[in-house]
Design a protein around this nucleic acid. Structure first.
Length: 1053
RNA sequence: GGGUCUGUAGCUCAGCUGGUUAGAGCGCUCGCCUGAUAAGCGGGAGGUCCCUGGUUCGAGUCCAGGCAGGCCCA
């Protein structure tokens, strides 16, 4: 064996080496190959969009998406990890619009849909290289070669197959619903999209008079001549022209008020906030009395007998406005609903670009927001405007282009998800959510109030909706496959080769099975969320091929994305799978929090606080970033990704691991330790060996249990503890064993143990920090071991033995050492000064070996374990003024003085017997109770007491002359060592030392000349200063002054 | 407005089914060690456990109501 190569501290160097190794040996492929026959552990990749750069926040789910597959692979499972890319949708179109400098659908049409779509297809790969290099550099293993791509014809065909099933089961229907609509993008937005863009804005809110026309059909009677007005309120003045009705809460109280000679009706509860100035309530009545009342709208755009009257509606609230809601069916969901129920007319004075049409000449051609002031002006002139107030509220904006959305009744295709609501809920409950509240709360809440899925989009780049409508008889069919398309096509040749995208697919006409006439495709594409939500099926091009692959990979065992995917991908996967396959498509789901910037704000492109991951990866390395994310807090917590936080594990954790290995490497190389040749028997192991091996086993248990329950943090905590104990206790206390000459039993035991722990630790850690573990493994592995740590099996908790008693005893020992240091610290006695003995009170038997460790660590002669140190302590009674004060008042001080005069023993005895004590104080009998006294344990002179938990320590700090002498010796040696360092000598330099000091020190040094010289590597040590030394310094040691002169000897090694 | 999560030391976070004196790491500070040495170790100081009520012998923990922040949804 040539020895163990040192591991460099620079994470970048060792990570690059590991990457090269994996590439050269094709390690990932070997992992898959090796586990091919194993049980499946199915992971689904939530496809990223490669038309945006990856940023640091993207790593949050990624690290877990890599951890569990790696862990399960080492556990022997076959984990395929097929990659995927989400490629359709509005974001892609918007990028292209920006590139080609257009801003609207007509402009796209003018540019040419084919050219546009081609650019979209290119655009989706814009940052693919960035994604791939980040994925590779972070050590995320993913099968990118076989990644699914949502825009391919195969993928689309599978999606079509799903949609056709839905259609055939009556779950796909055309509706007319009010959608949040972006006039700029020209498309309705799905609920998950709208959610992204709420902002607080100030809009004009107006109260408008609606004059009452007649009261024939209504309970309400006008009592006075002159017209009374219903006061209505809206934050969208532009919807006024579309008014067709008013709504009131039937059971709420309304009031008629008089103000400045006019009469107004509004909800009683809102009088105060809706009215300006003084008013007088004329009378009160319930809302239902107003129902049926006819009024004069500000703009009459429709001639319909049903229009312009008052209706009852449950949605009318008493929190804002006037309690009389203006109804514009085309521009509000509630409004539309009411119009449907009451058979009200429905019309659009606004077109899809958000501009008024000729139907409303006052504002024709004006966009709705610009029309607001015109309308307000007009209403004011006509004395219909009661009040105008700027109103602050949340309003949705387009999440991509920031245009204010309009609620707009549109034709749209829907999936009737409400039909499978119960099943969705049932399936949701089958999933283990991490954290649980994502499933029960966030998604559960959404499912409880489920609405149908608005599927269609009036756009260009997306999976085309596979519905064809007969031009003459109106029959609709959903095409389920290319084969069916060809079969039904007018031009079969075209159908057999056509690309399934607009505009190509638009050219395919079918023959109607009913009437034989032409069928044309509906112009829509579908919500891209349906694409990604179908990956459980479409990634395999199922059912057209890969039937086995599909069956073996459904459902997934594990998925993981950020929590914003709850109503995104998590929901769409669940919805499509529930409809198509009847069950939940995944069993375990981790929803991660977000990446925050240094000040705790969410990282997002729009805020411009996105941290480039490379800034951190290139400095601190992938392992460091990974470990930070795993160990800092639970996956679902948001994390600050500032440099100061992220870099911490490098020094705390990874460097310790590196140091520990390097310690091993240094000595194992010197001694030519060979794990194949040198093997310790169980008998040769000392207490430290047995202990650390036990700790190793219990760590394996904890980590395995943790990971099996998707509890990453407790796994990392267990590992961090093990490493801390390995480095700061096992190695620290074992150093002498490695320094010895030769290669006898104990030394072999130490090497064997440290080797075993290191190599197992590296296997435990491999899924977390794949780079450093590979580097160490490569330096440790022997012939016959797998060629990569990632091809190893995961350490098995069955293999080792856990000795709980030993672990407890060692923990107590460490506590004793800590207490010993504490006591020395308080008494200002350096560790260098040997002490006579320590008495230890603990209920754990420590044993000889462990006591020896403590003696060495604390530099004491003996450790005596005693059942209790009580016998050595003196108890001093302290008065408790809290009880004495209130009871005795001014005599409390005298009672306290009296207490001091009493023997503690007699007090204790009395209290133990349960009696109180009579004291004569100020000529009066006073009762002293147990609660009046607290006892302080005081160690005898020269002893130090330290205690924590169950452990008490009594340190005998009395120094004999001999101990003092030994202390001085250590002091002298220490001083010279320091001087060596100050002088800049190498550790191995031999030196010549001269000194000058008083008689006492001179005698001491002379007496121990040999020992001292050996320790400080001095070839000569004389009690005079003669020549010119390289380094001279005067020091104070104890009560003496000493001048040292140091020079390197020529005979240095 | 509704749902949900979070609020514990200067920073990042643990605190299980309510139970001694609320913990860890980093930072700070004092010190130690010196054959892992541009390493290592120990001690200490830092807390109104967001606030207010309530339940209880006992509340960081349970309940109610606030406040602040995040996310999701209206």
């Amino acid at each position: 064996m040539e020895g163990y190569e040192e591991l460099v501290k620079d994470p970048i160097v060792r990570e690059k080496e590991a990457l090269a190794l994996w590439q050269q040996q094709d390690t990932f492929a070997k992992c898959l190959e090796q586990t091919k026959g194993g049980q499946r552990y199915v992971f689904y990749e939530g496809p990223p969009t490669a038309n945006g750069k990856p940023h640091l926040g993207h790593l949050m789910p990624r690290v877990y998406k890599d951890l569990f597959p790696r862990y399960k692979t080492m556990k022997g499972y076959y984990v395929a990890r097929k990659g995927g890319w989400d490629t359709h949708g509005l974001p892609v179109e918007l990028e292209v619009e920006k590139e080609i400098g257009v801003n609207s659908k007509p402009e796209i049409e003018a540019y040419g849909v084919e050219r546009f779509v081609k650019r979209c297809k290119e655009s989706v790969w814009r940052y693919k290289a960035d994604w791939e290099s980040m994925i590779e550099r972070m050590g995320f293993w993913m099968d990118e070669e076989n990644a699914y791509v949502t825009y391919t014809d195969d993928y689309i065909e599978s999606v079509w197959w799903e949609l056709a099933q839905m259609f055939d089961r009556g779950l796909l229907y055309q509706g007319h619903k009010v959608l949040p609509f972006c006039p700029r993008c020209g498309t309705g937005l799905s609920s998950h999209e709208v959610a992204q863009g709420y902002k607080t804005v100030k809009d004009p809110s107006i109260s408008v008079r609606m004059l009452i026309n007649g009261d024939e059909e209504c309970c309400y009677k006008q009592e006075l001549p002159g017209r009374t007005a219903l006061l209505t309120w809206t934050t969208t003045p532009w919807t006024m022209p579309a008014n067709v009705a008013l709504a009131v809460a039937p059971r709420a109280t309304y009031a008629e008020v008089e103000q400045n000679g006019e009469r107004l009706i509004l909800a009683k509860a809102l009088l105060g906030q809706a009215l300006e100035g003084d008013y007088r309530v004329v009378r009160q009545f319930l809302g239902k009395e107003l129902v049926g009342l006819r009024y004069e709208p500000p703009y009459v755009l429709v001639d319909d007998a049903t229009a312009y009257s008052v209706h009852a509606a449950e949605f009318v609230n008493m929190k804002e406005g006037t309690g009389i809601v203006h109804i514009a069916p085309a521009y509000g969901e509630d409004d539309y609903q009411l119009a449907q129920e009451e058979g009200l007319p429905f019309f659009h004075p606004v077109n899809l670009s958000g501009e008024f049409t000729k139907e409303f000449p006052l504002c024709s051609g004006t966009s709705v927001k610009e029309a607001d002031p015109l309308l307000i002006d007009d209403l004011t002139k006509r004395n219909l405007l009661y009040r105008l107030v700027l109103y602050e509220h949340e309003y949705p904006f387009c999440w991509r282009c920031d245009t204010p959305l309009l609620y707009y009744a549109m034709d749209s295709w829907y999936i009737k998800t409400t039909a499978v609501k119960d099943q969705l809920n049932t399936n949701n409950r089958q999933i283990n959510w991490y954290p649980a509240h994502v499933g029960s709360g966030r998604l559960g809440d959404f499912l409880a109030n489920l609405k149908d899925w608005a599927l269609s989009r009036d756009r260009y780049w997306g999976t085309p909706l596979n519905l064809w409508i007969c031009e003459s008889c109106g029959k609709v069919i959903a095409v389920a496959s290319r084969a069916q398309l060809v079969e039904l096509a007018v031009d079969r040749k075209l159908a057999s080769t056509v690309e399934f995208h607009r505009p190509y697919i638009d050219a395919v006409e079918l023959v109607c099975g009913e009437c034989g006439n032409k069928m044309r495709r509906v112009p829509n594409v579908i919500d891209a969320w349906f694409d990604s939500g179908s990956m459980h099926t479409a990634q395999w091009h199922y059912p057209f091929e890969n039937t086995d692959e599909f069956k073996n990979s459904f459902p997934a065992d594990f998925i993981c994305e950020a929590v914003d995917q709850t109503r995104g991908w998590f929901y769409t996967l669940l919805a499509t799978s529930t409809i198509i396959h009847g069950e939940a498509p995944f069993r375990n789901c981790i929803a991660t929090g977000f990446g925050l910037d240094e000040s705790g704000l969410k990282m997002s492109k729009s805020k411009g606080n996105v941290v480039d991951p490379w800034e951190l990866i290139d400095v601190y390395g992938a392992d460091c970033l990974r470990w930070y994310l795993y160990s800092s807090s639970a996956p679902w917590k948001s994390k600050r990704l500032g440099e100061a936080n992220v870099k911490e594990p490098l020094y705390r954790f990874l460097d310790t691991l590196c140091n520990t290995y390097n310690f091993f490497a240094l000595y194992a190389s010197i001694d030519s330790f060979d794990p194949m040749k040198h093997q310790a028997t169980r008998q040769q192991l000392n207490v430290l060996d047995k202990w650390i091996l036990s700790r190793l086993s219990s760590t394996v248990n904890k980590v395995t249990t943790g990971l099996d329950n998707y509890d990453v943090v407790s796994a990392t905590e267990a590992i961090e503890s093990l490493l801390e104990e390995l480095s700061n206790w096992y190695v620290r206390s074992s150093r002498r064993r490695f320094w010895k000459g030769g290669m006898e039993g104990d030394k072999i035991a130490a090497y064997t143990t440290l080797y075993r722990v290191l190599i197992d630790l590296v296997r435990i850690l491999a899924p977390f920090v794949p780079f450093i573990t590979e580097a160490i493994y490569q330096r440790l592995r022997t012939m016959g071991d797998p060629e990569s740590v990632h091809l190893c099996s995961y350490p098995d908790s069955e293999d080792g033995q856990v000795d709980h008693d030993l672990e407890l005893a060692m923990a107590a020992a460490r506590q004793v050492v800590s207490l010993g240091h504490q006591a020395r610290n308080r008494a200002r006695i350096k560790v260098r000064q040997p002490l006579h003995r320590i008495l230890v009170e603990t209920n754990l038997p420590l044993g000889e070996e462990i006591c020896w460790l403590i003696e060495k660590e604390l530099n004491v002669g003996t450790i005596e374990q005693v059942p209790t140190v009580e016998a050595y302590l003196k108890k001093t009674p302290n008065p408790n003024f809290r009880t004495l004060g209130p009871r005795l008042g001014a005599k409390a001080q005298m009672a306290a003085a009296w207490l001091k005069t009493q023997s503690p023993e007699s007090l204790v005895k009395a209290f133990d017997a349960g009696t109180s004590i009579e004291a004569q104080i100020d000529d009066e009998d006073v009762e002293i109770r147990e609660e009046d006294v607290s006892f302080e344990a005081v160690p005898p002179k020269g002893f130090l007491l330290a205690e924590e938990g169950e452990v008490r320590l009594l340190v005998d700090a009395n120094l004999s002359d001999k101990l003092r002498e030994q202390g001085l010796m250590r002091e002298i040696m220490h001083s010279v060592q320091l001087l060596r360092k100050e002088a800049g000598f190498a550790v191995s330099d031999r030196i010549i030392v001269g000194y000058e000091t008083d008689r006492r020190l001179t005698d001491l040094i002379t007496e121990h000349r040999e020992t001292i010289a050996a320790e400080i590597l001095a070839v000569d040590l004389v009690s005079r200063l003669e020549q010119d030394y390289e380094y001279t310094e005067e020091l104070t040691i104890g009560a003496s002054t000493i001048i040292f002169g140091l020079s390197r000897s020529d005979k240095s090694e």
